[in-house]
């Protein structure tokens, strides 16, 4: 599956439009991470635990989006976008969406 956030896949031609596909996940962080984050807030710096959590969550949202695209029989998802929103205290929603399409490689490429 080709995933890009441009409107077309470079080197390919879109032959069929399958429609919007989306995936989301809501993640809460655990108490240990919260405590570590509290400490980090004194001295500043990267919150590695959160970075990992969000990377992993975003990957899952994307996988769900790809699963939908797969079901539609698409072989690429173009114009992928992300949004993040905090739903309740300590939980964040990660949402990925894009357009599922069928692409064919350009002959002269």
């Amino acid at each position: 599956m080709i995933v890009v956030n441009t409107e077309t896949v470079p080197g390919y031609t879109i032959t069929e439009l399958k429609g919007l596909v989306q995936g989301n996940t809501i993640r809460a962080k655990h108490l240990g991470r919260d405590l570590a984050a509290g400490l980090k807030n004194l001295v500043g710096g990267e919150l590695r635990g959160y970075t990992e959590l969000l990377t992993e969550a975003r990957r899952q949202a994307m996988e769900r989006m790809l699963a939908q695209a797969h079901e539609l029989g698409a072989n690429a998802v173009v114009n992928v976008r992300f949004t993040t929103s905090s739903v309740t205290a300590g939980a964040a929603e990660l949402y990925a969406y894009g357009t599922a399409v069928t692409v064919e490689r350009n002959v002269d490429a």
Partner: peptide, 24 residues
């Protein structure tokens, strides 16, 4: 758009993220 995309062999999604905390 990718200018001159005739010779492009691959287009792939790439990303990077980071969470940074402020100090007191």
């Amino acid at each position: 758009c990718v200018p001159g995309d005739r010779d492009v062999v691959e287009g792939r999604f790439v990303c990077g993220d980071v969470v940074i905390a402020s100090d007191y």
